[in-house]
Write a protein that binds this DNA or RNA. Structure first.
Lengths: 248, 248
DNA sequence: CTCCACGGTTGACAATAGTCAATCTTCGAA
DNA sequence: TTCGAAGATTGACTATTGTCAACCGTGGAG
């Protein structure tokens, strides 16, 4: 593991409050590994042996069934995934693949389970993290069930704009087909729907989003903290698409 | 609180392993209350002041946005809800209403937060519970994104049959319009879809489900532990529709 | 530099799902 | 027992979404 990585992990909400000794125990069993783009890190149904911490790159969490596939989340540095499966010692509900070359720290799940039993501060952090993840998926499910696809797209575009500091122009952080899958529609549908959003105040130029009328877009998206977040504590854990990297 | 209720609560996975003293502390601050059918217990966005434990009756958790509404779960005795919001001290993401006359124990969220900080066993139980809830919603989201509505219906009917001991005939535990909302479709759609499922080995007579060809139904539903559950530990927490009450 | 692979877009069409309205059924209150 | 309210079903229609195929544009391998 590289020298700068340890403090980065230590500063994550999940590891921030635990005893130093226990943190060291966890990290002693952990190891870093680099993976090329497009590699399947784990398959759904696999036993949960390691908590994954993304240090570089980005990782897609996806699910599949009967030949169909859908994106559930994208994890970026520094973020963790598959905490719940590790803790329950249960099979992964989602698969993971790298979207680009990625560096990942693997923390043995058994160590994790051992440590939070004797470090209350860590247990509390795990609780907070899991509660955040839970709420994030509930939000996702609410969006899927309550909003039409146009509304989901509009909300997403608006949310990204807010994350980019209310920028009226920014670049999509993920490929459109991935975004489509995350939002629960086909790429064709996303493509067409984006066109029909022009009168609603937003248009796309390649991967660049341009908000031409924020008022109209907001009218359509009707953003709602109970769906779009964030939680009052501002934690950004769990299942969601990442924020944009460069805004203009 | 009634004498038989305390041990019932104590035996829940969430409260089973904590110190007796701490359990007593929690229960001292708690109180029971009965509500008539159809009462809104809390609205989404409200601050999370109490963990709710359903002792009798049944409670629907639902979400709404922009005039639309959808069922997220139904909680039955003895079950808890809104743990995550209590723990994060965050607003409820869902609203709750009684489906029938219900008796509910209310445990102050502040006590809860205080206790798991000093009772590691309880913290571990909370972790297990939250991880279970998280996985339950992930499953629900997977079903919504990966399965068509006919497949969701078929899976649901088959799952309920399994819960009823592989019964080939049982009675739906909830109203059809609620089921439709839970499965992410309109009541009209559910009604029509049910008709088209007859060649697939299942038919309905009012609220009674009759599986005429389990093989065909299974072919359509393609049940999957990673969507339909249960987790290996058999916990039944979190977001799901309840199992049937009487099977034949 | 060329070509190929892949993501994205578009069109035509089919399948699916939602809406609105009317009707039927059921169950509980009076 | 009768009536009325609410859930459930049905029909007709519309809107939305998915599917399949063709085509475009870009960026990387050779």
């Amino acid at each position: 593991m590289r020298p700068h990585e340890l403090p980065e992990i230590r500063h994550l909400p999940l590891f921030r409050d635990m005893l130093q000794a226990n943190f060291e125990t966890l990290m002693q069993g952990a190891y870093a590994q680099s993976f090329p783009a497009g590699l399947e890190l784990m398959r759904q149904g696999d036993p949960a042996d390691f908590l994954h911490v993304v240090m570089e790159g980005q990782v897609e969490l996806f699910a599949h069934w009967g030949g169909r596939e859908c994106t559930m989340a994208v994890v970026r540095p520094v973020g963790t995934f598959i905490l719940a499966a590790c803790i329950k010692d249960a099979p992964y509900l989602m698969a993971a693949r790298t979207l680009e070359r990625s560096r990942i720290i693997l923390v043995p799940a058994s160590d994790l389970r051992a440590v939070f039993r004797r470090d209350t501060e860590f247990a509390v952090s795990v609780i907070q993290e899991l509660a955040g993840c839970y709420r994030a998926v509930v939000r996702h499910a609410k969006g899927l069930k309550l909003r039409t696809s146009r509304e989901r797209i509009a909300s997403y575009l608006l949310r990204q704009s807010v994350l980019a500091g209310n920028a009226n122009s920014y670049v999509l952080p993920v490929e459109k087909r991935l975004l489509a899958s995350y939002l629960g529609m086909t790429p064709e549908n996303l493509s067409r729907a984006l066109k029909t959003l022009e009168p609603d105040g937003v248009k796309l130029n390649g991967t660049r989003v341009i908000i031409t009328d924020r008022r109209k877009l907001t009218d359509l998206a009707r953003p709602d903290r109970l769906i779009d977040g964030p939680d009052p504590d501002g934690s950004n854990s769990g299942v969601s698409l990442p924020q944009v990297r460069d805004a203009t």
